[in-house]
Nucleic acid binder design. Structure first.
Lengths: 208, 208
DNA sequence: ATCCATATACCTAATTGTAGGTATTCACTT
DNA sequence: AAGTGAATACCTACAATTAGGTATATGGAT
């Protein structure tokens, strides 16, 4: 089956770039292009049925974020791949928050773009390998919110951690071995996909 | 000058205890006692002018927190010394938040109580030495909010810390020596009176 | 011109945290 | 009765943080 794509960008240069990258892929077809979000909604209203929309974030008239919000509401089957400049980390995160499924930078290579498209079609997320720390964190949080429940003990220890206790202090307070505290702490790390105490404190304060 | 004191507690036992402790102090006079906050307000309405009110936190009719709120509003010159059981940490913090100037536990020794009274008269804060971690933190925060300004670099590094970077990662990102990052981090620790990264993250998220 | 805060860099030592394991006990579910 | 999740405890090795210094350069304020 051929993957049908609409490309959205207010700079024709990028549209042409993406099109040329995808031109030789036999299982990928660019069925339309648009210069802003509103044009996409018009295309969709006219019975156009893409599988993927590759869209810039900042655009006149309707930006990528508004577009994505509209799409996930009315066309949940269409996957959105955000295309951004390097320096738009917070924009990218907003895109992901409203429902985009992947992100590539505008200097993306052919191989990576094709890979991104196929990944999204399979239902997975795709992110450029050289993405920023903040986007990695977003992804971690996303994974967590669907699947994580801390046990009573783990919550207790996380709480003590937030209140500044070291492993040794917790061990004394709870009359447990330091080893046990560390085991719990490591389990929390694993469950939340967070590697440091500082990160756990941030997570706890923002999500619990 | 004699320090005039009102003692407030719903258990007569404690009132008597405090009175007996203070009986032999020539410069301290217990001018009245009350069993709840409302009684105190009535005493004050009747021209009674204490320098210090020593008050329990949990009491019927009007508790210590409501009382303190009223006192700091209408009688800002009267210092409030919270008297609590061991296990009321969060209550104590609430008392301090609304304006109490000191805290002693109900098993306070004579020397400590007298010292607390004189400390408050001088305008300083007084806390039992064996107070909980949480109250220490409260006190730190109080000190900080009046006096601390982080430099631009320090703010930058604190921000990176909140976002999960290790010293080494920051060093690379900012093209500085790891030693320099650590120096800044230590300076932040000193300025904020916080000893751990986890604590800094908590502080940053709650105060900045 | 000197003082001072800021930013930089280095060093050592001790403590704490991180990551990879294994293992036992207990309560609860299938 | 067997299996599972939760809680406990231990071990090693390595990384990172914490605490205590010292030191230099620079730009702005008195």
């Amino acid at each position: 089956m051929t993957v049908k794509i609409i490309i959205v960008d207010d700079h024709q240069l990028f549209i042409d770039g993406i099109k040329s990258i995808l031109a030789k892929e036999i299982d990928i077809e660019v069925i339309a292009e648009a210069n802003n979000g509103l044009e996409v909604l018009q295309l969709l209203a006219n019975e156009m049925q893409p599988n993927i929309i590759i869209t810039d974030i900042r655009m006149p008239i309707m930006d990528g974020i508004s577009l994505t919000r509209n799409l996930v509401k009315d066309y949940p089957n269409i996957k959105i791949l955000a295309l951004s400049m390097y320096d738009q980390t917070s924009d990218v995160i907003e895109m992901l928050d409203v429902g985009a499924k992947g992100y590539v930078t505008k200097n993306v290579e052919k191989k990576e773009l094709v890979s991104a498209i196929h990944t999204l079609i399979k239902g997975d997320y795709f992110f450029s390998k050289n993405l920023s720390q903040d986007i990695k964190e977003w992804f971690n949080k996303e994974q967590i919110n669907n699947s994580t429940t801390l046990t009573k003990r783990e919550k207790e220890i996380l709480n003590l951690l937030v209140n500044g206790r070291t492993s040794l202090q917790m061990a004394k307070q709870l009359k447990l071995s330091k080893y046990t505290i560390d085991t719990h702490r490591k389990n929390i790390h694993k469950k939340l996909g967070i590697k440091t105490n500082a990160g756990l404190v941030k997570f706890a304060l923002q999500n619990l």
